[in-house]
Simulated assay, not measured.
Amino acid sequence: MGISAWLGVIRDVVLPRGCAGCDAPDAVVCGECRELLDRTVVFDMPGTSIGRGYACAWYGGAVRQVILGWKDHRDEECDGPLSEAMAVLAARCLQATVSGMHTVLVVPAPSSSASVHRRGRRHTAVLAAAVARACRDMGIDARVVPLLTMDHVRGRSVQMGGGQRSRRVSGRIAVRRPELCRHAHVIVVDDIVTTGATMRQCVDALRSSGAQVVTCLSVAYTPQPDAATVRDSAARDDTSAA
């Protein structure tokens, strides 16, 4: 066992962690909170091939606590549970959609330079990697390609309303290697979809460069009146066949 592993063991003995969602002892994400990440929320996503996107869960309560701890408080131990949830979502919702596609590019939604600096990494790349692995398990040649950039964006989106979010990213998202987009099938991945402004900007930028955006996936979706539906385990066969 390496030094870092020993330090981790010592830390866990001295300062045992609790669940990121509910603080239940001795779990990164406890079973009950993990079940909350096993929903299928369907939301409208214009410009994509199938016209809709999918999320693992509604954004609120324990799910909100898990995501905020992960992305803004550097709880990187949540990489595992969140990646698992995204892989399950991809397998559930994309099987019929990507069938017959030879190659898929999985594109993480971009963060502002300030956000990347504050967090110390591009956190959505972790989610994108999980989706790409799930696609490869389905026999699709999938790889993560960080095609999108977000430039000159100020202010934290969590503090903004819908109109402010849209104006914040309007015209700020660009494709860094448009030659890779031509005739490519693309899946966009993000952590949270609130108003959909960032996702729509991503889709528009990719399509303008010649990509065919299949759908968008996220960990969570913020409830919007009459804008989404959730399908429980009894309806998952219908979802996967969509």
Rank of each mutant, 00 (worst) to 15 (best):
H123W: 08
A134G: 09
S111Q: 03
V145C: 14
G100K: 07
G8K: 15
T239Q: 00
V66K: 09
C30Q: 09
P25V: 03
A130Y: 05
D141N: 13
A114N: 03
H183V: 04
T198K: 07
F43H: 06
R176L: 07
D191T: 01
A87F: 02
G53P: 02
V203C: 04
R231Y: 13
G51E: 09
I140Q: 10
R118L: 10
A205S: 10
L68C: 00
R154E: 13
T229M: 13
R167G: 06
L147M: 02
S170C: 08
P25Q: 08
D237N: 09
M150Q: 14
T229H: 05
A24V: 03
P178M: 04
V203M: 02
T149A: 15
G120A: 07
S99N: 13
V88M: 10
S112Q: 04
A242Q: 10
D44M: 08
R165C: 06
V230M: 13
E179M: 10
R11V: 02
G60Q: 05
S170E: 13
C202G: 03
D137S: 15
M86T: 05
V98Y: 08
Q201D: 14
R11G: 13
T97K: 15
R39M: 12
M1H: 07
T195E: 10
G31P: 03
M199P: 01
C202D: 09
L82T: 02
S111E: 00
L68D: 07
V116W: 02
R133Q: 15
L89R: 05
L15S: 12
A85D: 04
A62R: 11
G31E: 13
T149P: 01
V213W: 02
E76A: 11
L82I: 06
I173L: 06
R236Y: 11
L37F: 15
I192V: 15
P146Q: 06
G18P: 01
P223F: 02
L82N: 04
G80A: 14
F43G: 02
